[in-house]
Design a protein around this nucleic acid. Structure first.
Length: 758
DNA sequence: AGCACGCCGACT
DNA sequence: GTCGGCGTGCTC
């Protein structure tokens, strides 16, 4: 064979032992593995998972040894040798490598990208494991040569754009500019050469979380439901083989206690555990309970960790000093040694799916990892996703049900208020809190109890409208209306962050008669403070929690009873367990129902059941009031009865009828480009390729302009590929992916199992 | 992702 | 003619 002759000329690999050639996943967005020769220095020492440096293209790159090499992908190129073994011990286990290669394959993503996504960022960079994070920032040079900038407009439009942005914004992160302008880095380099901009490396400060180590809560006896579920899980753990469970426990049924005891079981026998949560900063109470129980055995993988700290946590896990990893989505890659159990809390939460740069589902990879590690996986939630439920129905996982709250506390009573009726009354029309909710809130305040108010929209009003021409003020980069924020009196875009003063006159017709419409959390807060002057109100949304640790701070203050009302967005629905809360108000339940997404009903149902579940967790029973314009809507009616079974079976039938998951499998392909025409024509071209490649085996819907037609200055088009099975989907998708040549300035995203259809 | 190669339009 | 920007293709 060709490659044997080639290799035998080199002194490094004289035999055909497996170590003479290795396959390497190189840190580059390239769709294949590469084969390298192994030099004598470490011949026979390389094992899968070793972090290497290899010559690649012009320079050197980091790479991971995947396994023995067989032959070159293309026999006509020259074989190169591994240049360096970076770390003496492998940084990935074989089970992790199998998981990651599976993921790269399934999510149609370059193996090198997937593999390095599982490692701390310093490992990817040459020069090793920096402990301080430095980023490149760029600003205009102090002496600006106006003559030369004007010159640029014709010759280099991209450079001219960048200069204009820098004039406005001052100093900016290079990586942020790159997100907005493709090719920004080369353009900036050119500008730097001309002396028009200045780049420097800036140290990014770390924000270590001050960790509380509370004492473990006293041991309580389990409910019958909890005991049955725990027994089923521990029986599976005893077998030390892959098994999957869907733990469906109503809100307040004590799922966390089941997780903790199951994790204890594996930790006691020397194994490790992974606990995934949707958003770690929103679940301080869960993190506190885990740390209380397992103390220094816990590694918390917080998104706010600095690079050095993250690396430290990573090392502690890899060395076996810590055995329990807690974190969001990416913690599925935590280097826990020999994990015996992987728990996914709130498995229905859509934040487990990353839908940008590198799309993958942390929940689904948790199952794959558990399979590869021979571990038990537990998906826990009060509102299982339709997919996971169907998975259990088809016996791919075991359904465990906990229908009763601890201490036999009742589920809260839910009432629905029809907002259509309040439209008739001129006073009520102006208010976001209906008379029914207002009187319930007054009672709660009287009794010195607490309330949670939920409104899934931040800001003050949802848009500013001109009373003469009827146009709303829109974002210049995105196809959305700007939202008025009263705190800083600005109009903001919730997608790109654009922040502009409110114009005196209408930008379209010069009329001075602008008016604010709609509601957001800011306006609601104002109304609560006005109508209930004595009440202490805490607002929880991404505006009040922008600073690190702020969520934890505000939630703990509310939990300690320092405020009477917690008012906010999605954040108030997740995970907190505040015994004093006896009232939950949903200000506008139908907000999510109008989204063009086949999961809109499922999301609404989950959201309502979850938020309702925050009420009545203490000794006193809870009450829930849902305000809506659609009181007879199925997902609202069934949520008021906490009726998951009816909901899921109706939803399954509906999905079957319409051909949506889990009845089918989906791939979304999204194209984006600065130029609208380029985006649409490329999308049409790709859709054509799908139709040609599919030969009728898959259904190609679209292309259509994305519901969010423009985002951060880029026009978006998308298509949905519907296939009867994964195999068919993969086959067709791979065929098309190989044919596509990405034109300059375009971005194409293949999103397998899309969650976010906007 | 980088980087070389090569085409093409704007200027000394 | 030359210079530099920008599209295209390749990396064991």
């Amino acid at each position: 064979m060709m490659w044997l002759e080639e290799v035998s000329k080199k002194p490094v690999a004289s035999t055909n032992a497996p170590e003479s050639l290795v396959q390497v996943a190189v840190a580059a967005p390239v769709r294949s593995l590469f084969t390298y020769a192994v030099p004598v220095d470490f011949a026979g020492k390389l094992v899968p998972g070793h972090l290497l440096e290899v010559p690649f293209g012009r320079g050197n790159r980091r790479g991971i040894m995947i396994g023995p090499g067989k032959t070159l992908q293309r026999p006509d190129v020259e074989m190169k040798a591994v240049s360096k073994l970076v770390e003496p011990d492998p940084v990935l286990s074989e089970a992790m490598i199998r998981t990651l290669l599976w993921a790269a394959d399934y999510y149609l993503t370059p193996p090198g990208e997937m593999v390095f996504a599982a490692l701390p960022p310093p490992f990817r960079r040459r020069g090793g494991s920096a402990s301080q994070k430095r980023v490149w920032v760029v600003g205009l040079a102090p002496v600006t040569d106006l003559e030369r900038i004007r010159e640029l407009t014709n010759r280099a439009p991209l450079q001219a754009d960048l200069v204009r942005v820098l004039e406005q914004a001052g100093e900016m992160d290079v990586s942020r500019l790159e997100q907005r302008f493709s090719g920004a880095r080369q353009a900036l380099r050119a500008l730097e050469k001309k002396g028009l901009v200045r780049m420097r490396r800036k140290v990014k400060l770390r924000h270590p979380l001050t960790g509380e180590h509370p004492d473990a809560s006293p041991v309580e006896t389990l409910t019958a439901d909890q005991q049955v579920s725990l027994d089923a899980i521990t029986t599976a753990l005893e077998r030390r083989a892959y098994a999957a469970f869907l733990l469906h426990g109503v809100t307040g049924s004590g799922k966390t206690e089941v997780y903790l005891r199951a994790i204890s079981h594996v930790v006691d026998r020397g194994q490790g555990a992974i606990l995934l949560v949707p958003e770690i900063s929103l679940t301080p109470q869960l993190v506190a309970r885990v740390t209380a129980k397992f103390k220094s055995q816990v590694a918390v993988l917080h998104s706010g960790l600095g690079e050095g700290e993250r690396l430290d946590e990573w090392r502690r896990l890899r060395l076996g000093q810590a055995r329990v990893a807690v974190g969001a989505r990416s913690a599925v890659f935590a280097p826990v040694q020999d994990p015996g159990i992987v728990v996914v809390d709130e498995e229905h939460d859509s934040s487990y799916k990353q839908s940008e740069r590198l799309p993958y589902s942390g929940r689904d990879l948790a199952m794959v990892r558990a399979r590869e590690e021979g571990a038990v996986v537990v998906l826990g939630t009060a509102t299982p996703s339709v997919e996971s439920f169907s998975h259990a129905e088809r016996k791919r996982s075991t359904l465990l049900h906990m229908g009763e709250r601890v201490h036999r506390r009742p589920l809260p009573e839910v009432e629905v208020v029809d907002l259509k009726k309040s439209l008739v009354d001129p006073v009520e029309r102006q208010q976001t809190i209906s008379p029914a909710l207002a009187s319930a809130l007054a009672e709660v305040l009287d009794r010195k109890e607490q309330a949670i108010l939920f409104l899934n929209r931040r800001g003050y009003s949802s848009f500013a409208l001109c009373k003469d021409c009827g146009r709303s003020i829109r974002c210049e980069n995105c196809s959305v209306a700007l939202v008025y924020h009263r705190a800083d009196q600005k109009l903001k875009c919730h997608y790109c962050g654009l922040n502009v003063p409110v114009p005196e006159t209408c930008p379209s017709c010069e009329s001075g008669r602008m008016q604010l419409f709609g509601l957001g959390t800011e306006k609601c807060e104002e109304e609560v403070r006005r109508r209930f002057p004595g009440a202490g109100v805490i607002r929880l949304d991404s505006d009040t929690t922008a600073r690190r640790g702020k969520v934890h701070d505000l939630v703990s203050r509310f939990a300690r009873g320092e405020a009477d009302v917690l008012l906010g967005t999605q954040m108030v629905t997740k995970g907190h367990d505040v015994p004093g809360v006896t009232l939950v108000g949903v200000l506008l339940a139908d907000l999510g129902l109008h989204l063009p997404d086949f999961r809109a009903m499922e999301r609404t149902f989950q959201l309502l059941v979850q938020v309702a579940g925050r009420a009545g967790r203490g000794h006193k029973p809870g009450r829930v009031i849902i305000q809506t314009f659609l009181p007879e809507h199925e997902s609202i009616v069934l949520a008021t009865h906490h009726d998951f079974d009816t909901f899921v079976h109706k939803e399954l039938a509906r999905r079957q009828g319409l051909g949506y998951p889990p009845a089918t499998r989906l791939l979304m392909v999204r194209v984006n480009h600065h130029a609208a025409e380029a985006a649409s024509s490329l999308a049409r071209q790709i859709a054509g390729m799908f139709r040609a490649a599919s030969a009728g085996r898959v259904n190609v819907l679209g292309p259509v302009v994305s519901p969010l037609a423009k985002l951060r200055g880029r026009h978006r088009w998308q298509m949905l590929i519907k296939a009867p099975t994964v195999e068919t989907l993969m086959l067709v998708a791979r065929t098309v992916q190989q044919q596509i040549k990405v034109p300059a300035g375009a971005k194409i995203l293949f999103d397998v199992d899309p969650q976010d259809m906007l």
